[in-house]
């Protein structure tokens, strides 16, 4: 009995798995257009909310700072797309990912193009020429903030290293 059971079990596992996967996959593709590639752009939401604020209005220094934070998120997203896209293209060609994921990357990329133009235009409205600098500023700020955070973690790193050392 065992000699028959093994190949049967094998077939059930392999084909059963495939069937379950493809039905899940078809259902999933039918149900959704595609999910946005990035979560809600909260820095953009805050910037626009600040612009809309009246009585009292947000001071200009705060608006400018919020625009820089928005640009920082943009830089992160542009880098993410640049990093993910080639890998996803390979997966798409292999058939390892669906068209939906690919479409959502392309849509995100298109949206980011417009987003960058909008941020640059906003920046230029405050100070002529700032739009050409703001993304460079944003990327330096991200790197500098990471370094400051690293420096602040030193005491915690010492106690962690100390604990490891005691064990």
């Amino acid at each position: 009995m065992a000699s028959i059971l093994v190949p049967v079990l094998y077939i059930v596992l392999v084909f059963g798995g495939l069937w379950a996967f493809s039905s899940w996959y078809r259902k999933r593709n039918a149900a959704q257009v595609y999910e946005p590639y990035f979560p809600q752009h909260r820095e953009r939401d805050l910037y626009i909310s600040l612009l809309q604020k009246s009585d009292p209005p947000a001071p200009e220094s705060l608006l400018k700072a919020a625009l820089v934070r928005r640009a920082m998120t943009d830089v992160t997203r542009i880098l993410r797309i640049r990093e993910d896209k080639p890998a996803l293209q390979i997966l798409l060609q292999k058939g390892s990912i669906g068209d939906d994921l690919w479409s959502s990357v392309l849509a995100a990329e298109k949206e980011m193009e417009t987003e960058l133009l909008e941020v640059a235009a906003e920046a230029n409205a405050y100070v002529e020429g700032w739009g050409q600098v703001i993304f460079q500023t944003a990327s330096e700020m991200m790197a500098n903030e990471r370094m400051r955070a690293l420096l602040e973690r030193v005491p915690a790193m010492r106690s962690e290293a100390g604990e490891c050392w005691l064990v």
């Binding site: 805050l46 001071p59 220094s61 705060l62 400018k64 700072a65 919020a66 820089v68 934070r69 700020m141 903030e145």
Partner: peptide
């Protein structure tokens, strides 16, 4: 981070 930058600009 936002508020720090705002203060610096201000």
């Amino acid at each position: 981070g936002l508020n720090r930058l705002s203060r610096t600009l201000h």
